[in-house]
């Protein structure tokens, strides 16, 4: 029982990270109908941005909340800019082309980021410094809630609430929803479609960077290919919840994290990565719209 609780806690913390990344996938898919293959690599860039900021402000010497926020904000800013840049120069010129071209470009951007990362940062993993004090908030027998887990969960919950507020309560969010409904009609009623799409990319990328920092707090290792697997799993989480649905991404992320934690705990960690693909295949076979998605028949 204690083991189960501990796994549930670990899974929830991991799931909140997946949920943050899945939100970026789902937002971009909702607005452009594009699976942004490069999203996982934006997580990686965010993690590196965080690493360099942490070293620059000498974070390891002062592990506290203030330095954590500086690192988090810097990473989010860098990734948001990168997201804007990618959207502007790689995706926007192709907006009126077949979607297959957009997909291939996304694969290309992803490969470029990974390989450029290996050239610029080197292929060897680097250790992410401890920027949070490690302590246990709560100890009950074998079950412990660590400071890292609280930080991860708290940060991601806060960001999700902010996102929910932006999308549902602000004028910008209403414009985003309008553009995702129809680009043409949105631009007819005076919504600057291009700017809204850019904004969506910036927000999604910032969330990805935050997730990158949270990953590094839990597993302090940064390498240029770290985004590949995390990105794929978060994508599966988005599909599980119903791609295009924001609530679905959050629920899918948590389910994914808990399922992975259980498989590692009770099964074998070699099946850790196969699990994501197995879930994906099952979902696509039996409920392609996901848990919260709407099935839209294709019309000529």
């Amino acid at each position: 029982m204690e083991g189960f609780l501990q796994l549930l806690l670990n899974g929830t913390a991991l799931g909140s990270i997946y949920a943050l990344i899945a939100l970026g996938y789902t937002m971009v898919y909702g607005i452009l109908r594009l699976i942004n293959f490069a999203h996982g690599d934006i997580v990686m860039v965010g993690a590196y941005a965080g690493l360099f900021t942490a070293l620059a402000v000498n974070g390891p010497a002062h592990p506290d909340l203030f330095h954590f926020f500086i690192v988090l904000l810097a990473a989010m800013a860098v990734s948001a800019l990168l997201g804007l840049f990618i959207e502007r120069f790689a995706y926007r010129p192709l907006r009126n082309f077949p979607r297959l071209n957009l997909l291939i470009t996304a694969v290309g951007v992803s490969l470029l980021l990974e390989n450029l990362g290996q050239v610029v940062f080197g292929a060897t993993p680097r250790v992410f410094p401890d920027i949070m004090p490690s302590m246990n908030w709560f100890q009950f027998g074998q079950v412990a809630i660590t400071n890292q887990q609280v930080t991860v969960f708290g940060t991601s919950l806060f960001l999700m609430v902010v996102l929910e507020w932006i999308v549902l309560k602000t004028k910008l969010g209403r414009a985003m929803r309008a553009v995702s409904y129809s680009h043409e009609i949105a631009s007819l009623v005076g919504i600057p479609t291009d700017k809204i799409i850019s904004f969506t990319f910036a927000v999604g990328s910032a969330l990805a960077a935050a997730a990158g920092i949270l990953v590094c707090i839990s597993y302090p290792k940064v390498d240029p290919l770290m985004g590949v697997m995390i990105g794929l799993k978060a994508f599966v989480a988005a599909v599980l919840g119903g791609i295009g649905s924001i609530r679905g991404a959050v629920v899918g992320g948590f389910l994914m994290g808990i399922a992975e934690s259980m498989v590692v705990g009770y099964g074998s960690s070699t099946y850790r990565d196969a699990l994501a693909f197995a879930i994906l295949i099952l979902i696509l076979l039996f409920k392609p719209a996901g848990l919260f998605g709407k099935y839209q028949p294709e019309k000529v």
Binding site: L94, G108, S110, L111, L112
Partner: peptide, 19 residues
């Protein structure tokens, strides 16, 4: 090893210039 960098760059440029 710039090989994969050049590959992926080529892929993007190809899609943009001559899809």
């Amino acid at each position: 090893d710039l090989r994969m960098v050049i590959y992926s760059f080529l892929l993007i440029v190809m899609m943009l210039v001559r899809p």
